[in-house]
């Protein structure tokens, strides 16, 4: 590269950082201006939408130095502007199919009780299915991994059964099992269990021979061997499977709720879809997105807390 080109490049990249920090704030101002100019949807109270925007802007102001957050907010504000403009300022938009942001966020304020109930019901099913899958997956996985005969027979079987997406047999499970609760716990269980079971069995069968010898020479009791050697040995590998497993389980759960439930987030979305209340459908979708993100964040934090040894 010539000196001139380098100079040019330097000048270009130099001018960029100063501006970038202002962009989201400018967009924020544009968005506010849009909201307060008269449009097609002025009957809806703006409180909830403004609160959401206020919180985002405050978060951005607190983490002023975070480039990632600046970029994220830039993108988010652009989306909001498009959404706000498209639904309230453009002519001939079907407000039934394309509700304005103010409308969607107002649902959070008016329906929070129902939403909370939905979250609680979904989390309960997820929690039970997850716990069962974790406990059984680890117990059976460690057993399978440490006994060569079980490993050679059960693992190939598991590898055939596990790729079948649980979402495929969800309708059947809902039809066959006595209650919806049992059916959804079953499908959640199946969407988490196999990953944990296979991962645990593979980890245990691949455990470092030296480590095992060392443990044996310490004359560990069976429980100590299980809880203080095999389980912590597998833990990092199990943690790695969790984000995908839990996301899958949540997907299956919401699908199941759309088929047969009378509560839960999936039910919330389907119920209002039946009444063509797409405002609530969209707010339900947003809530599901937030719940999944919080779950993933929780799992990542858990991994950081629990696996501290490398």
């Amino acid at each position: 590269m010539t000196t001139a080109a380098l100079e040019e490049k330097k000048r270009f990249s130099f001018s960029w950082p100063a501006v970038q920090w202002f962009i989201p704030h400018v967009l924020f101002a544009v968005l506010l201006a849009l909201i307060f100019t008269p449009g097609a949807d002025d009957s809806t109270p703006h409180g909830a939408f403004l609160a959401v925007l206020g919180i985002s802007e405050a978060a951005l102001l607190i983490n002023r130095k975070s480039r990632a957050l600046t970029d994220i907010m830039t993108i988010l504000y652009l989306l909001f502007i498009a959404w706000e403009f498209g639904t309230t300022k453009a002519d001939s938009v079907n407000l039934l199919l394309y509700p304005s942001p103010a409308k969607v966020f107002a649902i959070f304020a008016s329906d929070w009780h129902k939403i909370l109930d939905g979250i609680r019901s979904s989390m309960y099913l997820l929690g039970v299915g997850f716990t069962l899958a974790l406990v059984l997956g680890v117990l059976l996985g460690i057993l399978t991994g440490s006994v060569a005969r079980l490993r050679d027979s059960l693992l190939p079987l598991a590898k055939v059964i596990s790729p079948i997406p649980p979402i495929i047999y969800t309708p059947y499970a809902v039809a066959v099992l006595p209650t919806f609760e049992i059916a959804s716990i079953f499908v959640i269980f199946s969407s988490i269990f196999w990953q944990i079971y296979i991962q645990t069995a593979l980890s245990v069968s691949g455990i470092d021979k030296k480590l095992l010898d060392s443990a044996k020479t310490m004359n560990l009791s069976a429980p100590a061997m299980f809880f203080h050697v095999l389980w912590p040995y597998c833990l990092p590998n199990i943690m790695k499977t969790l984000p995908i497993s839990v996301a899958n389980a949540f997907m299956v759960l919401t699908a199941a709720e759309m088929i047969g439930a009378t509560s839960g987030l999936g039910y919330f979305v389907r119920y209002y879809a039946d009444f063509a209340d797409y405002t609530r459908v969209i707010s339900g979708i947003i809530i599901i997105g937030i719940v999944v993100s919080v779950l993933n964040y929780g799992i990542a934090e858990l991994e950081r807390k629990v696996v501290r040894w490398h």
Binding site: D208, K210, L211, D213, S214, V229, W309
Partner: peptide, 10 residues
């Protein structure tokens, strides 16, 4: 042993 006598998680 020469290696891996300790448990890495403790």
């Amino acid at each position: 042993f020469q290696h891996y006598s300790l448990f890495p998680w403790m």
